[in-house]
Design a protein around this nucleic acid. Sequence first.
DNA 1: AGCTTGTTTCGACATCTGTCGATGTCTTGC
DNA 2: GCAAGACATCGACAGATGTCGAAACAAGCT
Lengths: 122, 122
Amino acid sequence: MKALPLIEPEASDAVAPCCPPLTERPFTADEAETAARMFKALGDPVRLRLFTAVASHEGGEACVCDISDVGVSQPTVSHHLKKLKEAGLLSSERRGTWVYYRVEPSVLAAMGKLLGFAPAAA
Amino acid sequence: MKALPLIEPEASDAVAPCCPPLTERPFTADEAETAARMFKALGDPVRLRLFTAVASHEGGEACVCDISDVGVSQPTVSHHLKKLKEAGLLSSERRGTWVYYRVEPSVLAAMGKLLGFAPAAA
DNA sequence: AGCTTGTTTCGACATCTGTCGATGTCTTGC
DNA sequence: GCAAGACATCGACAGATGTCGAAACAAGCT
């Protein structure tokens, strides 16, 4: 009868308990696989523009219509947002007509940790 | 008769003067292109293992023979190291029989800056 | 010179990825 | 109910990417 709540390994799991700092020791295959997913998601110019657009938008969220002006078609925007979501970097919520995306809070801290920056004040 | 040495915009240029923090404002197309190159280079599990192997190796450098045990053929290792070098993340130097790779010093600071971590004590 | 070891380059190949237009789904307003 | 707008999904396609074996290149040894 395990009392632990198991903490639902859903979206946030993709990013949160990742790996030690890059400079600490060689990553195992699994660690590399996990961390690479994150970097890969940001490794496309369009996705990076979408991510920064969401991250810098007032209120910490933006609807697709607010950020669609990145030079590619609307289906392509949707495709990239899906990728970012699958990577655990963004989350989305429909409110009425529009769909809002926001940065998954743990992400920036996790990446900072990965680079060896102390999560001190986090 | 230009006196300025032009500072050779080669390897280090690929990383150093990149972009504002991800959360500050939407990236321009150029900024996104530049920053994405960096993330993309780390967006492969094999490259991430190679990078962490170099970064964590004693003396801050490692010869190819030290880090080749990542489950792919030796030409593939060489291919990935080349990619990391082209992205400005690693530099290499031949010393006798062996070729040594080391982490380009500015990289980690640049990435930290990108994530909004102050380069204070850097 | 020739052999051995460490590393890179070359071709070739299968797979993944980014992109689009067309179409589908959901919500609102008439 | 139906038309319109906001997003997502589908199918197709060109181009990029990861991988390998074979071969080339470099340095040290005998």
